[in-house]
Design a protein around this nucleic acid. Sequence first.
DNA 1: ATGTTGATGTCGCGG
DNA 2: CCGCGACGTCAACAT
Lengths: 239, 239
Amino acid sequence: MIKPSNEEAARFIRARSPSSVLLIKAIMRVDYEGRAKAGLEAGSYLIMTKPDGTFMVHGSKKEKPLIWNPPGSRLYVELQGNALVLLSIRSSPRERVMVIIDELEFLGSFDVEHVDNKVVGTESDIVDWLVSNPDFIEQGFTVLEREFETGVGKIDILGRDSTGRIVVIEVKRSQAGPDAVNQLKRYVDHIAQKRGERPRGILVSPDISSSAYFYLKTNNLEYIKIKRNLTSLRKITDY
Amino acid sequence: MIKPSNEEAARFIRARSPSSVLLIKAIMRVDYEGRAKAGLEAGSYLIMTKPDGTFMVHGSKKEKPLIWNPPGSRLYVELQGNALVLLSIRSSPRERVMVIIDELEFLGSFDVEHVDNKVVGTESDIVDWLVSNPDFIEQGFTVLEREFETGVGKIDILGRDSTGRIVVIEVKRSQAGPDAVNQLKRYVDHIAQKRGERPRGILVSPDISSSAYFYLKTNNLEYIKIKRNLTSLRKITDY
DNA sequence: ATGTTGATGTCGCGG
DNA sequence: CCGCGACGTCAACAT
């Protein structure tokens, strides 16, 4: 629909298939209040709403919407005088996006598929590979547990080295920062406290920021730099 | 344009205003390879591309696109036999999204505004307020520095209590988890090492998970629970 | 460009 | 639901 009247638009939206994605281009004002508060001055924006309740107002830049409500929100449409008002309500936490449309330029409803798409190359893939190839960590390394629960987070791999010492391994799929070191440190401290003996801690990642590396070293933790590949890892000793 | 031919579509896309957002609804196959690897089987999806290079393939659920390329990517359009091929290339890191369109259902170009919208209720707002109202922390608290750089991250507020002891404050706008505690701990350790004397560490947030609270307490750190408001804070002593 | 943190993060998993 | 952590996080900001 090109330049529909607000009445036509309200009818169209109410009558749309419940499984369709709605696209709206219009001159509008937007207000959001919930976990935070934000708003848009009158201007031309694009709305995308999905059948799962997702409500987004996009501008001309960036991947993220300017204003949005997440999946599970409910959409209400009403005519207020000359304006078409869209209200997206999320119940918990209570959040509200209100759109006041002055002039509609385009309105369309599209049937779009839902798929669960698989991503390859995640941290979990790396952990899988390490569990199947424990010698990669070092000769004689054995895996005790994967996703070992500490109460302050899960240890990617808990293992034992050839001398019998416990080893905590934290894996990052991309560059590790101070946070990753902190995480490893937290797990090492936890195991140390529980067992009365300090385990080794190894961070495994394709890269690490310099200050994170320094922080790691001052905490007596170890680092293994890897080169990722779709099916395997390679150790990098030159850094 | 409704159901344009692929030739018409290619012309339309190439001739579009460089400041417009493009919307495409079609039956397509999509492949992504870059930091990871993913793909979509032939199906009906919605593409949104923005003038800043953002390229997104949306399904019928969720806020995030199924496949995307971030701002700064370049879009190439070509006809390959019967198919219309869109190629979005990001140079650093090298990433590629390829879309093979079999059947176009809709193609539209829209001029949309760019705005920088202000969000109220961020962490920075809370820190601002605390800096203007230091007694909120406790009687006699004085602010020394805001965003104090440690080399392993920035301390939200560095201050001094009424007895002259250094205080490190970390603020979270929503529920704090173990890594917020870790962050505070990291800063406290850093200052301790630099000054030779251990400072106090206070976490300020509207909520904290129970294990994070336990972790905080076992590390001799303190907690202030707040109730946020758009213009002020209230201290919650009952938890 | 690198590095770090915040986010209305979102998303998925597990208890 | 809560809690926890990954994410192709993204995006802003400082160096």
